[in-house]
């Protein structure tokens, strides 16, 4: 396993492992990498597998786990699973933030006091522009949800996806996230990636092995190069960045990713900010 640890230490691969918990979603965003929607096949990753792989990740030297989807919190059992995963390494879970009212908020209780942060998507300070990509009333639901989560004790980050905003739009977005209680350090901006529904977007950035930093990503369909890799095109999971169908033991895809990644210029993805 030293090769995997060495690769993390010398920056060849990321120290974070990603899991695609599921592919279905209550939204249907126009640039979605995974063609997610309420009708999308779920492709759910078994929770016991996620927990087992997280323990293996820690043993291999990975220092963080990310959980993404789909809308991850459509699975009501996820909070308890995240809590258990966070006993091994810190966990970041990506969500659209539209499901956290009433009982749904209370169901997040197992996550409290754990090393778990939630990353919520919010693309613009302009509700119309935000909702154009993410769906009606998304903006309103998210700006209501974030303070509610923070007040409940959850750590929240914001991710904004889209073409590089002009200075005015960027400032408006930052003013908004600060007003919601999110610091600049917890706000990430990333481009639309030219995969999935984003493949036809003007201004989207290419995302192949030359552009994507290798971050081991586990899905129900196998292990992939990066969380931007197991995308869906015309209802089929893309295989161009498939590392292996084998996901357990985690050392198998980890070692393959290292072998594939060796020789890539370190940091070659930074220009696109798609880590």
């Amino acid at each position: 396993m030293n090769a995997v640890l060495d690769a993390m230490e010398n920056g060849t691969i990321s120290r974070r492992v990603w899991f695609y918990a599921n592919y279905h979603c209550n939204l249907e965003c126009s640039y979605c990498l995974t063609e997610s929607s309420p009708r999308a096949p779920r492709r759910q990753l078994d929770h016991s597998l996620m927990k087992s792989l997280t323990r293996q990740a820690a043993d291999l030297g990975f220092t963080e786990v990310g959980v993404t989807g789909g809308e991850t919190f459509l699975d009501l059992a996820l909070p308890a699973t995240l809590a258990e995963m966070s006993e091994s390494v810190p966990v970041i879970v990506l969500t659209n933030g539209t499901l956290f009212a009433g009982d749904r908020l209370e169901r997040l209780a197992p996550m409290l006091g754990r090393q778990i942060s939630m990353q919520i998507s919010l693309d613009s300070a302009n509700p119309d522009l935000n909702d154009m990509a993410r769906g009606p009333e998304n903006f309103a639901k998210v700006v209501e949800s974030i303070p509610r989560l923070i007040n409940a004790g959850h750590r929240v980050r914001i991710a904004s996806t889209g073409q590089a905003p002009d200075e005015e739009s960027q400032e408006a977005l930052c003013t908004l996230h600060r007003s919601l209680g999110i610091s600049d350090d917890d706000h990430v901006v990333r481009p639309i990636v030219r995969r999935g529904r984003g493949a036809t977007f003007d201004g989207s950035v290419p995302a192949g092995p030359d552009e994507l930093f290798p971050e081991l990503t586990i899905t129900a369909d196998g292990a992939f190069w990066s969380p931007f890799a197991p995308t869906v095109s015309n209802d089929h999971v893309d295989t161009d960045l498939l590392v292996s169908r084998t996901v357990e033991p985690l050392s198998v895809p980890a070692q393959r990713l290292v072998a594939l990644a060796q020789g890539r210029p370190v940091g070659s993805d930074v220009a696109n900010n798609i880590r």
């Binding site: 295989t239 161009d240 960045l241 590392v243 393959r256 594939l260």
Partner: peptide
């Protein structure tokens, strides 16, 4: 069958 544009990196 996997096509050229879907061929895994390896």
């Amino acid at each position: 069958f996997i096509t050229a544009n879907q061929a895994p990196v390896s």
